[in-house]
């Protein structure tokens, strides 16, 4: 267990700035997801923490001690790669023992550790197999066992679920969270998949173009995005963004309420021409064009996606135009130029 802290961490590749002054501090035993699109610098950040790359400037601290310049061998950071990177010519047993053998751990301790870790991950019956004979889920467990066996201070996960089949991914997510709750090892979890980040992490650090956008709990990120990037990146479908001139109004798809069902103060009320309706089991999605209620709808009617959680069919069909309102408590405003979150404007827009 440990506290990871990065201070003004920067990494250049030639002229390209891959990581641009990132400050993250974890709590002890916390699982922090680093969420960002591909090319955002999250992998570089992770590789610097693991010791595979050195920062251009800034510092990385584990429990207050700087680990910059310390060889990965001597940093007690374990990593699980996206591909799991199992050694194909070794049995599962030798794969798991490899970090112990490399660190010249005595034989009897190796055996105890192996028993302990295979018990936790329930892979006792796989020990004599070759990695090529394992399923995706089994490979993931072996990779986790190999990372866990050396008692690391810090775990670094590189999209460990994205190479699994979609059917077992949610199960694997649950198991990963259970493993973390049991071991209480501080974990940095790098992913581009917001479902993984929202579902797994205690807190999420959103990163884009090398810079940290927001750090917060999944609920904070969803309900109160700090800027337009977070608003557009977190949530599926993303937050609807409507240009009001000086400011942008953001509203989640589920925050649009048909006018006749609404009560209380409305931040905005818009006429939406429904183009298409999708049934997704527990919810409906409606795709539409805003026809009235905000400025400049005539030239570029903005597209919106609305979400309705209900069993019965919506009371409207494609082609119809309906009036929806967004309650004041649910509307979020962003500065149109900087993209940063701002307070609601004084005057309500007609």
């Amino acid at each position: 267990m440990a506290v990871l802290e990065t201070r003004e961490l920067k990494r250049h590749y030639g002229k390209i700035l891959a990581v641009d002054g990132v400050n993250i501090t974890t709590n002890d035993g916390e699982m922090v997801a680093v969420l960002g699109p591909s090319g955002s610098g999250k992998s570089t950040l992770m590789r610097m923490v693991a010791g595979l790359e050195e920062p251009t400037s800034g510092d990385i601290l584990l429990d207050g001690r700087s680990v910059v310049g310390i060889h990965p061998k001597h940093r007690n950071v374990a990593m699980v790669f996206q591909s799991f990177a199992l050694y194909p010519h070794m049995s599962v047993r030798d794969n798991i023992r490899f970090p112990l053998v490399s660190r010249k751990v005595p034989e009897d301790e190796q055996r105890r550790k192996l028993e302990w870790v295979t018990g936790i991950l329930e892979i006792e019956d796989l020990l004599d197999r070759r990695p090529t004979r394992l399923s995706g889920g089994q490979s993931q467990k072996v990779a986790l066992a190999r990372a866990l066996v050396r008692d690391p201070e810090l775990f670094v996960f590189d999209e460990p679920l994205s190479s699994l089949d979609a059917q077992i991914r949610s199960q694997a997510r649950g198991e990963l969270r259970a493993l973390h709750d049991r071991t209480q090892i501080t974990t940095l979890y790098v992913t581009h998949d917001q479902l993984e980040a929202l579902g797994l992490a205690d807190r999420i650090a959103v990163i884009n173009q090398g810079a940290l956008q927001q750090v917060g709990t999944p609920r904070e990120l969803y309900n109160d995005p700090a800027n337009l990037f977070v608003a557009g990146f977190v949530g599926d479908p993303p937050m609807n963004l409507l240009n009001l001139g000086e400011a942008m109004l953001g509203a989640r798809p589920e925050d649009f309420v048909p006018e006749d069902e609404s009560s209380g103060d409305a931040a905005i009320s818009v006429d939406v021409e429904i183009e298409q309706i999708e049934f997704l089991g527990a919810e409906w999605l409606a795709y539409g064009l805003v026809r009235a209620g905000i400025p400049e709808v005539d030239s570029h009617p903005p597209r919106v996606i609305l979400r309705f959680r209900q069993i019965e069919e919506p009371r409207f069909v494609a082609g119809e135009t309906r009036r929806f309102v967004v309650p004041k408590s649910r509307a979020r405003y962003f500065d149109a130029r900087s993209g940063e979150r701002v307070m609601p404007p004084e005057v309500a827009v007609a």
């Binding site: 990965p72 790669f81 996206q82 990177a85 490899f98 490399s102 050396r150």
Partner: peptide, 22 residues
């Protein structure tokens, strides 16, 4: 794969262990 060699580095293997075992 480069990841396999990096994994071995993180697992604490030195130059000769990586050469002869990986």
């Amino acid at each position: 794969p480069r990841e396999r060699l990096e994994q071995a580095t993180i697992d604490g293997a030195g130059f000769f262990r990586i050469l002869f075992r990986i």
